[in-house]
Amino acid sequence: MKPRTKFLIGGALVLSVAGYLMASSIKDTGVYYMTPTELTAKLQADPSFVNAGVKVGARVVPGSVQRAAGGKEYAFRVTDGSHTFPVVYRGIAPDTFTDSVDVVVSGRMGTDGTFQATELLAKCASRYENAPQKYKDTPGYKAGARRA
């Protein structure tokens, strides 16, 4: 056999193992990423979906964040404008987690309609730029008023 052929066989072997690992780990660990509306629709169509792990991207309803007496349990509501549901998360919340911030919660929807989150990521749209709201309160601010 030519060395070139041998190399190609070896390479195909490496790549197929890598491909198999990729495919199987996507199957085992991939999770749906949904908005509250999509999750609600999916649950109505297929009630068994409660057992599937999902990630939900939504915004925390202002004023809804409650920290339980235990200190590390957070209860809050998330919304995408049309659908809202409660979330419970146990663990350490990131610094960026506050009212009305965009969050990504991972976990599953409980049968009682409360989302049990095992992971909480807070997106800080203002990570590099300070809260626009505060800026808009500056006297004289007009939305979109700028000159290039």
Binding site: S25, I26, T29, G30, V31, Y33, M34
Partner: peptide, 9 residues
């Protein structure tokens, strides 16, 4: 469907 993969993948 949007499916995300994380560190395990």
């Amino acid at each position: 469907n949007k499916i995300t993969v994380g560190p395990p993948f």
